[in-house]
Structure formats: C-alpha cells, structure tokens
C-alpha cells in the first residue's frame, strides 16, 4: 500500500505525541519529587532534595515498603509454581475443558479488581473465618499473578516444542533427569521474567489489597492512598510515588532483556 508522505508524517506525529502523553505524567511525578513548592506549582521555581531526605526517614513509608516486598515475594513464589504447572498441563495435553481452564486463569485479571477483592474478603472473613492479615494479601495476589507466569512459561514451551525432551528421553534419561537437565534450563529465563513481572504486578496492586489487607498493615500503594489527601504529606507522597515508578519499571526492563516472549503479550 502506498501512503502519501503527508499521511505518513501525520501518523508518525501521532505515535510521537502518544508516547509523549504516556510518559509525561510519569516525568511530572519524578520532577515534582524535587520541586521545592509544596503545592507543586508549575513550572518548578526551585529544586530541592529535602523531600527525598524526609521520605527516607519516614517510618510509615519504610514499614510499608517492607510489607510490600514480603507480600510480593511470597505471592510470586506461589504464582511461579502454580503458573508453571498450569502452563505445562495446557501446552502439553489436549483435553476436554482446556479452553475453560485458560479462561479461568485469565479471570482474576479480566474481572474488575473490586470483584476479586470483595469475593476474597467475603470468603476469608465469613466463609473460612480467617482474620485478614499479610497471609490473605499473599493469597489474593498469588491468584492474579498466576496468569503472568503462566503466559511467560506457555509462550516459551510453545516456542521450544518437545524435541529436546524427546531426544533426552531417547538417550535414556528418565522424566526427572530430563526436567532437571533439559526442560528447566530452557525455561529458566522465562521463569525469571515471569517472576519479575508477577512481583511488579503485586508490588503496585491496590484494589484487591484494600480488601484483603489486615488492619494496621500498609503496603506502599495503600500508604500513598492513605496519605494522599493530607496536604502536608504531599511532597513525601510524591517521593514515594517516584520510587514506585522506578521500582516497577526496572523489573520490566530486566524481564524484557531476559525473555523475548514477554514482548508480545502486554501486561498479561
């Protein structure tokens, strides 16, 4: 198809403008974290590192960070195991109900977060009689992190096919040895990428967390939300927001470097 020069220029302009719009708000947060004006008047009149110093000394933010890290690590571990198992089952076997299961794996992300949140909240408190705490957040986060690992692993399995494993079996290795020496090494980077993405997903999740976190605990996003409407906290909140931007983009960058499979599927 021949496209006129003007059309091409307009389309490229749209792409550049669109990317600009996507990044602009993030840059604003990063810039405002050194904006001396407490109400973030624009353009910044003066720059300061005072807010960063205050944020580092902030007890609430530090304990929230620790809670987020623990929840993220635990949820990621569970998601890695379950997601990998599901990926093997769905990629290597053809069986009745296979489509329904892949739908079920997507469901926790496809349904609005608030629905997953109150469904689990209700199940924990009234059905199972468990008090909300860190454990309940881990269970909830693992539920929607499974799909991330699943997608990374299944993409890798699809790309590799089963030839190497068959060769290994033909050479006399049993299933366990084949997994240890052939399958796992080939999956390693996909698992690492899936794990990083699952961690990033858990780290900044807020809606499901709101409904499953025990009283007295705060993850980093919840801390931000709780302090968002306090005017004197605004600069510190902004620094934490800047930290979250950096902390969530680094794992994605690493995941991209580790596994080309991640590139096609978006956040899932």
């Amino acid at each position: 198809m021949t496209v006129s020069r003007t059309t091409r220029l307009v389309l490229f302009g749209a792409l550049v403008l669109g990317l600009g719009v996507i990044y602009f708000p993030l840059l604003v947060v990063l810039l405002n974290s050194v904006n001396a004006d407490t109400t973030f008047g624009w353009p910044p009149s003066e720059l300061t590192l005072e807010w960063w110093r205050r944020a580092i000394g902030n007890e609430g933010a530090r304990s929230a960070l620790w809670t987020s890290v623990r929840a993220g690590l635990a949820a990621t571990s569970i998601a890695l195991v379950l997601g990998t198992m599901a990926a093997f089952a769905l990629q290597r076997y053809r069986f009745f109900g296979r489509d329904s299961i892949s739908l079920l794996i997507i469901l926790p992300i496809a349904l609005p977060g608030i629905v997953t949140g109150i469904a689990l909240n209700n199940a924990f408190r009234t059905v199972l009689g468990i008090d909300l705490g860190l454990f309940t957040v881990v269970v909830a986060h693992a539920t929607f992190c499974i799909v991330v690992v699943f997608n990374n692993v299944i993409a890798r399995l699809r790309r590799l096919g089963g030839n190497f494993e068959e060769a290994s079996m033909d050479l006399g290795a049993n299933g366990l040895t084949t997994f240890r020496l052939v399958t796992f090494p080939m999956l390693r980077s996909a698992l690492l990428a899936g794990g990083l993405l699952a961690f990033a997903l858990s780290f900044d999740e807020i809606i499901v967390t709101t409904f499953t976190l025990g009283a007295g605990l705060e993850t980093l996003p919840i801390w931000i939300l709780n302090n968002l409407f306090r005017p004197n906290q605004a600069p510190v909140v902004n620094v934490v927001a800047a930290v979250l931007i950096v902390a969530s983009t680094v794992p994605v960058y690493l995941a991209q470097r580790l596994s080309g499979d991640t590139a096609s599927g978006g956040r899932l």
Partner: peptide
C-alpha cells in the same frame, strides 16, 4: 516503551 509505563503504579499515575 509502550509496555513499561503499564507497570508503573496505577495509583501513581492517577495521582499524577
């Protein structure tokens, strides 16, 4: 470039 901001916190973007 398109995907990375997706992972930056939802809350942070709304806040921004």
């Amino acid at each position: 470039a398109v995907m990375t901001p997706l992972w930056a916190s939802y809350l942070v973007k709304a806040y921004s």
